[in-house]
Computed example of a mutant assay.
Amino acid sequence: MPYGVRLARPDELDALPAIEVAADARFRATEYADLVAGYPTTEIADFADAQDRWGLWVAIDGDDRPVGFAHCKPVGRISLYVAQLSVHPDHAGNRLAARMLDRVAAFHGPRGVRRLTLTTFRDIPWNGPYYERIGFREVPDLGAEVFLGRQIAEQVRSGFPRETRMAMARPLVAPLSRGASG
């Protein structure tokens, strides 16, 4: 089946919570099942805000229906935080998460964003290890990363064990400056 990635449209926002819930079902087989099940899904208003700011991208199937999404939020002037990345399990295995993040990077990099960041589980194969395979690296010093430190602290307050959480960043290629040659 052919897939694509594009900015989300306002008429698609109502379809995204079901994708998030279906994607989170993978956690049922982990020790974090109860924690993930109790964590709130993204509000439609949050999706709408991200969509207004070019921070909501969808993976679409051959019928132009969303089957995954990347929900991103600007942090300062040069970072974009991936608040949620979900792919419906019926469409897993097609590199849709990586394709969405690559598209987000290609769009935002030339607009001054220098990195993508996220928080995730350290030990679940489709979390920390997966993100490392697609170019993310652990942020070693959360003391120097106020926003990411707050995200981890909030997740710990919600019941996630601190030792299981990690913040990661993926640098984006800086655009050529005007007048540069090469």
Rank of each mutant, 00 (worst) to 15 (best):
Asp46Thr: 13
Ala180Met: 09
Asp141Val: 08
Tyr3Leu: 08
Val36Glu: 02
Ala97His: 04
Glu31Asp: 14
Pro129Arg: 00
Thr119Met: 03
Ala83Leu: 06
Ala167His: 04
Glu138Thr: 04
Pro161Phe: 06
Arg137Leu: 07
Ala37Ser: 09
Cys72Leu: 06
Asp61Trp: 10
Gln155Glu: 11
Val87Trp: 01
Phe47Tyr: 13
Ala174Val: 13
Ser79Arg: 15
His71Phe: 07
Tyr131Ala: 04
Leu7Asn: 01
Phe69Tyr: 02
Gly4Met: 02
Ile78Val: 14
Gly179Asn: 03
Ala106Cys: 09
Arg6Gln: 08
Ala33Ile: 01
Phe47Gln: 03
Leu85Ala: 14
Asp52Ala: 09
Arg114Asp: 04
Gly55Tyr: 08
Ala22Asp: 10
Arg99Ala: 10
Trp57Met: 08
Ile124Thr: 01
Gly93Met: 13
Ala174Pro: 10
Gly135Asn: 00
Arg114Leu: 08
Leu176Glu: 15
Met1Asn: 10
Val113Asn: 05
Gly149Tyr: 07
Gly68Cys: 14
Ala33Arg: 01
Ala169Leu: 01
Leu80His: 07
Val173His: 08
Asn94Cys: 09
Asp64Tyr: 05
Ile19Val: 13
Ala153Gly: 11
Val87Lys: 03
Met1Gln: 06
Arg114Asn: 03
Val21Arg: 14
Gly159Gln: 05
Gly182Glu: 03
Gly128Asn: 01
Arg122Lys: 06
Pro17Gln: 15
Ser177Asn: 11
Pro140Asp: 00
Asp63His: 14
Gly159Phe: 04
Gly62Cys: 07
Ala83Asn: 02
Ile60Glu: 09
Lys73Val: 12
Pro129Ser: 03
Leu101Gly: 02
Ala106Met: 10
Ala167Ser: 06
